[in-house]
């Protein structure tokens, strides 16, 4: 299921992309980059699997442990939820963000700057957009596996309250896609490893304050608006709505937010890569 979803996303993305960028930048072969990643990671499954544990540990520590101290939290529609039920979908959103950002920044910066991998690829029929789409697809595929596993853990712990949760997986993928695309675009502006502190500066406050651990109602009205425009808040809203069964039309707004974010990221990343590599 993750695979068809991913293909559908990239095909739709490429149709849009072909209208915006010259054909020389794209040859429809991004999938080979995913293939390369599979070959590279064939021997590194342990490293891949370790990525799954981070949100699960957070869930056990905060959701279950810390949750003992919190009786109930108001859910998306105002209904009372156990703390673990409240925090689990937010951790799913945060892990989609973290995984995608990590893949799209550190990994890509290394290949771009030090391994000169992309120079070698661009001597073949592949174009910069193939690289952007391929790398993002790989980040997505990996993130999708983590999300699916985490959703199963949630199901096992009784933290899923509605069949809407079936849509949580594609939603998490969309979130990851958007973060990966923007992360990759940001990476093309980075000059040294020091610049990655800025990534942390953007990601960590979002993780802590975008209603991951407490509801929006704790903020004064003025601050709420600031929180609400952050992408992680949008992701948490979307996923929390789906796993608790409180789905409103606002969810479509969340989806549109990430669609725009993803498309912008892909186009900027592809063009920046073209400018940097095809001098």
């Amino acid at each position: 299921m993750t695979h068809t979803r991913e293909r559908a996303v990239s095909r739709r993305g490429s149709g849009l992309v072909l209208r915006i960028v010259p054909p020389g930048l794209y040859s429809g072969r991004g999938g080979v980059i995913v293939e390369r990643a599979l070959v590279v990671n064939r021997r590194a499954w342990l490293a891949i699997v370790s990525g799954f544990f981070e949100p699960v540990l957070f869930l056990l520590s905060l959701g279950v442990g810390f949750g003992q101290l919190v009786s109930e939290v108001a859910g998306p529609g105002g209904q009372p939820l156990s703390y673990a039920t409240f925090v689990a979908p937010a951790l799913l959103a945060a892990s989609a963000m973290n995984g995608a950002v990590y893949d799209a920044t550190f990994n890509i910066f290394f290949k771009f700057k030090y391994a000169r991998l992309y120079d070698a690829m661009l001597a073949t029929p592949m174009g910069p957009l193939d690289i952007a789409i391929g790398e993002i697809s790989w980040a997505l595929l990996r993130g999708g596996l983590y999300s699916a596993a985490f959703l199963l853990v949630m199901l096992g712990m009784g933290l899923i309250l509605s069949p809407w949760a079936l849509l949580a997986l594609p939603a998490a993928l969309l979130v990851a896609f958007a973060f990966a695309a923007v992360g990759m675009a940001a990476t093309t502006f980075m000059r040294s490893w020091q610049d990655f502190d800025l990534v942390q500066l953007a990601v960590l406050p979002m993780f802590l304050f975008s209603t991951t651990f407490f509801p929006l109602s704790v903020y004064p009205a003025g601050v709420r608006v600031v929180v609400q425009v952050t992408p992680l808040y949008q992701a948490v809203e979307l996923l929390r709505g789906l796993t608790t069964g409180h789905v409103t039309w606002a969810a479509l707004g969340n989806v549109a937010y990430f669609a725009v974010m993803a498309a912008t990221g892909v186009v900027v990343a592809g063009r920046r890569l073209a400018g940097l590599l095809l001098k």
């Binding site: 072969r29 080979v32 293939e35 390369r36 070959v39 590279v40 391994a115 000169r116 991998l117 120079d119 070698a120 690829m121 001597a123 073949t124 029929p125 592949m126």
Partner: peptide, 25 residues
Amino acid sequence: VPQEDNLDTELTARQNLEVYGRYFG
């Protein structure tokens, strides 16, 4: 053949050739 070698250091010699061939479709 570029001035500086840009082989894929995450792959073996054989994989370098195979994966590069795949870039050509």
